[in-house]
């Protein structure tokens, strides 16, 4: 649904050059929620603004729903007609909501419909539908100044959906909200994604956002995508940085010197198997469990366990093979010092 190829954005100001995006390849499939995570300055904001051409990339291409936007003339506030038409099919939600204070909630939602040129009755009907969808039917006549942050973001989402977009861009939509409101807004995005088949590309600096709503994620650093993929795949990838961030086990013990420490990740079906006792019985070894946790990540049960086996790595090759055969993902940590081998 959204594909960027070798996207580069260089800002030039007073002879200085700042590379905000450095060859970003991103592939967001239709109907998924895709999260881009990174610290401030990683380039994620520039990336999302490039997707609807609020920023024109220095080079590279952006294809949204089969249309290469980089071929359309204009940028930001000087968009050509074709680009403006293309933007109507891409909804955008902002961190600070960006609602017009001079308009009521309903009038705010009607704004994109006015731009499209719908008549008054059609606008009313559509706005009422959208307000219902985001659960604010009773606030149609309120002004944004009278709403809470969460309510404002609901209005922002309703407005973004007014043009029946196939793609919704969310620029830190929950970063100005408290944790509880964040959860309800994320749940709303998830519902919309499922009900309407909406493709959502969101950027955030909070791992929790990725964990609770995303199907896929990308980690950005210094203008580059360091890692990307489906969450379930990432969790099954050895040494995945994102997986580690999503599911940190840092607090656990590191075992004794001379022993082998394993990190075992299991998801879905494999989580039902009593593999620890099977391992102990089959190979007659004593297994020391250093720590374990189970979490729900994008609707799936994922567990991770850190265990200690007696003896150095070479002595444990067979038991490790056994675990891998069970469909478990096994990361061998450097003997007893906690770092990855």
């Amino acid at each position: 649904m959204i594909t960027t190829k070798d996207l580069t954005k260089v800002y030039r100001s007073r002879g200085r050059e700042v590379t905000a995006l450095d060859g970003v390849d991103l592939h967001v499939r239709e109907g998924e929620v895709y999260g881009v995570v990174g610290t401030s300055g990683a380039g994620k904001s520039t990336l999302i603004r490039c997707v609807n051409m609020l920023e024109r990339p220095t080079s590279g291409s952006i294809v949204v729903d089969g249309l290469d936007l980089t071929t359309l003339p204009g940028q930001e506030h000087r968009a050509g007609r074709d680009l403006r038409t293309a933007r109507r099919r891409i909804g955008m939600v902002f961190q600070h909501f960006n609602l017009l204070s001079s308009r009521t909630v309903q009038q705010n939602i009607e704004l994109p419909l006015e731009i499209v040129g719908l008549d008054r009755t059609q606008r009313r009907r559509k706005a009422a539908e959208l307000l219902d969808l985001v659960g604010l039917a009773d606030k149609a006549r309120s002004y944004p100044g009278q709403l809470s942050g969460g309510q404002k973001q609901r209005v922002g989402i309703a407005r973004a959906l007014a043009g029946d977009p196939k793609v919704l861009l969310s620029d830190e939509a929950t970063s100005a909200l408290d944790p509880e409101t964040t959860r309800s807004i994320l749940a709303l995005l998830r519902d919309l994604n499922r009900q309407l088949g909406l493709t959502v590309l969101l950027i955030t600096h909070e791992m929790d956002v990725i964990k609770s709503v995303c199907d896929s994620a990308a980690l950005m650093r210094g203008g580059k995508v360091v890692e990307s993929g489906e969450l379930t795949e990432l969790l099954a990838t050895e040494n995945s940085e994102l997986a580690r961030e999503l599911f940190p086990l840092g607090e656990f013990g590191h075992g004794r010197p001379g022993n082998t420490v394993l990190e075992i990740t299991f998801q879905g079906d494999t989580s039902a198997q009593p593999f620890v006792s099977q391992l102990a019985r089959t190979y007659q070894i004593d297994i020391n469990i250093l720590g374990a946790a189970v979490e729900h990540i994008s609707g799936r049960m994922v567990g991770r366990m850190r265990v200690e086996l007696p003896g150095v790595h070479q002595e444990n090759v067979v038991p490790i093979g056994f675990l891998r055969e069970q469909g478990l993902q096994v990361d061998v940590l450097n003997e007893a010092n906690g770092a990855l081998a």
Partner: peptide, 24 residues
């Protein structure tokens, strides 16, 4: 940010003036 929102909706300069700058 309001101008940005209008541009993201597909509005042009004239829309931005009439619907955002003047009323706001």
């Amino acid at each position: 940010g309001l101008l940005e929102a209008v541009h993201a909706m597909g509005g042009g300069t004239w829309t931005a003036i009439r619907k955002v700058l003047l009323p706001e």
